[in-house]
Design a protein around this nucleic acid. Structure first.
Length: 785
DNA sequence: CATAAGTCTTTTTTT
DNA sequence: AAGACTTATG
């Protein structure tokens, strides 16, 4: 085979010659020129700008296979993806290329994982230099919120002045920018920032005392330990000679730092620089709100001088009709390097745009559209995307009504259920007794006479003596003001936990020896199961029975995990960590970690034979022959909270672009003229993005009623009007049409976004410098400008 | 201390 | 509409 691509022209140290283990021809001959070039460029920094649908995954998997084929030991290769599912698929595809017959020796030691999993693994391995204990718990958002709340209280502040959510956001943003509590305090001058700095400090202290880390800590602490500890850095560098990062446009500063510390940035003269391959697409950057910094990808060449840049522009996924709509839309973004999208396919149906009356009709229309598609395509080949999770509900109802099988991509949904969270909290206390948030959650669930007063006394004692709450429980007699009854209840609780852990040793006859046994016993002996059983009996409620089933499902998921777990292959265990941990504890830890790091997109399972429902964010990286995107309305997509500045608006547009480019053959985009938001029906405005698709690319139809009818319908379907109350005509609303400029005595100048009808008509106005406010029309002191 | 009822508020997106 | 949070009552 004759390739016009120089294979190793500019490298001094060519990799070992191909060993001929695989069919090189098969690996390369169906690739385009640029794709092949990306696969063959193994040495030195490489940036692959991969447009949507340009065969990115194929290039990545072939490239890794090629590296191994060239003799690079698989264990020297580290590939980082966005979700576990992407990692799993990639690993499978590489495996399929290298050892089709399946012995898997060629890929042994290859690391394909997410940033967060890698960091968790490194932090367990290097717990000590990171200032942690290896059995740390990973806190999710609700755990974080609980702890921030407590931190706010310890700082003697009020959560009404400083809502936990916003403080947490500030802390999280700081961490994403690699600003720790000390640095934050040093840089805070105004009152609010200083307060946040105090809470940040208190929160961090509480976190360490609970032997816990949050998602941001995984990245921050890893970056810090790599930066400050030369030994750790060297060890990682020696191990990971080849780094590949996918979705590079969505990495934040911490991730950027981790990557550059692992590969090293110093380029001695004459060398070609680190073997770092970044793959991404600036047009698909949709995580700015969580600290992702698009300049990581835009400035790659400055960070890694001499980097080779390859652009994959040809789209193999979508019809020209869909592609043209996507391209017309994304061209509107000003801060953007134009990158033409082109297709080798021909024809295709135009994008269908449908106006609906309300969200229920919208859902019914989508269901009907899916049914039509089903005459040619399988359910698994279709998907429905929406901006916010709240929109899934109506869609679910409609699909159930239409007998269409569906699955919602919400990886964490199961683990967020109350009963499952409770059972997991027990497991976390067993794995890490210092975990105060989990302990607080379950100490009186089911009720066992240890109420809020008692527990706050325990916590106070723990804070004062700087020991963990669980240790205080062990010697509850010494806690002042505890009632004898409470003390008795506490010692029973401690005895129960000790029964599962053997007092922490995980040894002894009566202690569980398998994860399955442990989880099963905890669910039963904690009283959780009987509590929900009693509730189910009392209420005859379907959802209470469901809780029982969920507990059973958790037990079997633990059994499943146990069966598949290979201690040798387990990242945490294999990386060393504290190898002294009892085997069951190591297993439990791995189980809890796998749960903590599930992504929504992980729940997408094409083998399910059902339509997939998911957010636009979760849709990134996927493709479906038929796609419907719902809720194309101003204030929803683009979202109200992101309409205030151009950068945010452009990110919303990219989000829409990501949704469109998932579609291979058919695309439906809908909006509802009326949508019920938090209980009140509101008039909406079609998304600007619909107009921006380009007239020639779409075929538009209106299935909604006209305005007058809609108002009538709206006031009647408001259902809960007090009898006799005459629904207000849109008279007042008409005075402030959507888009009109208004003045408010307090908020200043703004633009009307939505106007509702009904008994309590609202008007929402986007005020300059203030944001979106919803006012009761009758009382709003608004005047037209 | 436990529970029920009533009031208030509301991150959109996620590892 | 749904959940978090507060207060009243036994």
């Amino acid at each position: 085979m004759d390739f016009d691509v120089p294979i190793l022209s500019d490298s001094e140290e060519p990799p070992p010659p191909p060993t001929g283990r695989i069919d090189l021809d098969a690996l390369l001959n169906d690739l385009t020129g640029p794709q092949r070039e990306a696969v063959l460029h193994t040495e030195g920094p490489l940036l692959v700008l991969a447009a949507a649908g340009s065969g990115k995954t194929r290039v990545i998997t072939r490239r890794i296979a090629y590296l191994i084929h060239c003799g690079v030991p698989a264990w020297q290769i580290l590939a980082l993806t966005f979700t576990n599912k992407a990692a799993g698929e990639m690993r499978e595809r590489i495996h399929a290329i290298l050892s089709p017959s399946g012995d898997g020796r060629a890929v042994r030691g290859l690391t394909v994982t997410t940033f967060h999993s890698l960091c968790a693994r490194l932090l367990r391995r290097y717990a000590e230099p990171a200032g942690l204990k290896p059995d740390f718990t990973i806190y999710d958002t609700s755990d974080q919120t609980a702890l921030v709340k407590k931190a706010i209280e310890t700082c003697q502040l009020s959560t009404s002045n400083f809502p936990a959510r916003s403080v947490l956001t500030a802390i999280s943003n700081a961490k994403n920018d690699l600003v720790d509590a000390d640095a934050f305090a040093a840089a805070s001058f105004d009152y609010t920032t200083k307060v946040v700095a105090r809470v940040y400090r208190a929160y961090t202290d509480a976190m360490r005392r609970a032997n816990a880390v949050d998602f941001d800590d995984l990245l921050l602490l890893t970056a810090r330990v790599l930066a400050r500890n030369a030994d750790v850095r060297e060890e990682c560098r020696r191990r990971y000679q080849y780094l590949l990062v996918d979705e590079y446009q969505d990495t934040n500063k911490a991730q950027f730092q981790i990557a550059s510390l692992i590969v090293g940035t110093q380029t001695e003269p004459g060398t070609r620089g680190p073997n770092f391959c970044a793959v991404g697409d600036p047009d698909q950057a949709i995580y700015g709100w969580r600290g992702a910094d698009i300049s990581n990808i835009l400035e790659f060449e400055e960070h890694y001088p001499g980097a080779k840049v390859i652009t994959l522009g040809e789209n193999f996924r979508s019809t020209p009709a869909i592609l043209s709509a996507a391209d017309t839309l994304i061209r509107i973004n000003r801060r953007r390097k134009h990158k033409p999208l082109f297709s080798s396919k021909a024809g295709g149906e135009p994008v269908e745009v449908v106006s609906c009356n309300d969200e229920r009709q919208e859902a019914a229309i989508v269901a009907h559209w899916l049914k039509e598609r089903h005459t040619h395509a399988a359910w698994r080949d279709m998907a429905v995307f929406y901006r916010t999770n709240a929109l899934s509900r109506v869609m679910e109802d409609a699909l159930r009504e239409a007998n269409i099988p569906y699955t919602i991509a919400r990886g964490t949904a199961f683990y967020e259920r109350e009963e499952v969270k409770n059972a997991l909290a027990y497991l976390r206390v067993v794995a890490n007794p210092a975990d105060s948030v989990s302990l607080g959650r379950i100490i009186n669930v089911p009720t066992r006479g240890i109420g809020a007063t008692t527990y706050s006394r325990i916590e106070a004692a723990a804070d004062q003596t700087a020991v963990t709450a669980f240790e205080v429980l062990r010697r509850a007699e010494s806690v002042p003001d505890l009632t004898a009854r409470a003390a008795g209840a506490i010692s029973k609780f401690v005895a129960m936990v000790d029964g599962w852990t053997g007092g922490g040793s995980f040894m002894g006859q009566s202690v569980p020896h398998t994860l399955h046994d442990l989880v099963d016993r905890i669910v039963k002996e904690s009283g959780l199961e009987s509590m929900y059983k009693a509730q189910a009996a009392a209420s005859q409620n379907e959802s209470d029975l469901e809780r029982m089933e969920n507990l059973a499902e958790l037990v079997s998921s633990a059994a499943e995990f146990e069966k598949e777990w290979d201690p040798a292959a387990d990242p945490a265990a294999a990386a060393g960590g504290d190898s002294s941990a009892p085997p069951l504890l190591a297993l439990l830890r791995a189980y809890l970690e796998s749960i903590a790091l599930v992504a929504d997109a992980d729940a997408v399972d094409p083998s399910q034979g059902s339509v997939t429902l998911m957010t636009l964010h979760a849709a990134k990286g996927l493709e479906f022959p038929a796609v419907a995107i719902v809720g194309l309305e101003e204030a929803l997509l683009p979202h109200a909270r992101e309409m205030e500045n151009d950068a945010a608006m452009e990110e919303e547009r990219r989000l829409c672009f990501v949704g469109i480019t998932r579609a291979m053959r058919r695309l439906l985009m809908t909006h509802a003229k009326y949508r019920t938001i938090r209980g009140i029906p509101e008039r909406t405005v079609p998304s600007r993005f619909l107009a921006e698709l380009g007239k020639g690319n779409t075929i538009v139809s209106d299935r909604g009623r006209d305005e007058e009818d809609a108002w009538e319908h709206d006031s009647r379907s408001g259902a809960a009007h007090a009898s006799g109350a005459s629904p207000r005509r849109p008279g007042a609303g008409a005075a402030f049409p959507v888009g009109c400029n208004v003045r408010h005595p307090q908020f200043g100048i703004g633009v009307v976004q939505t106007v509702t009808g009904g008994a309590n008509a609202r008007v929402s106005v986007l005020f300059r410098g203030i944001g979106l406010k919803t006012l009761v029309l009758e009382f709003a002191r608004l005047s037209k400008v």
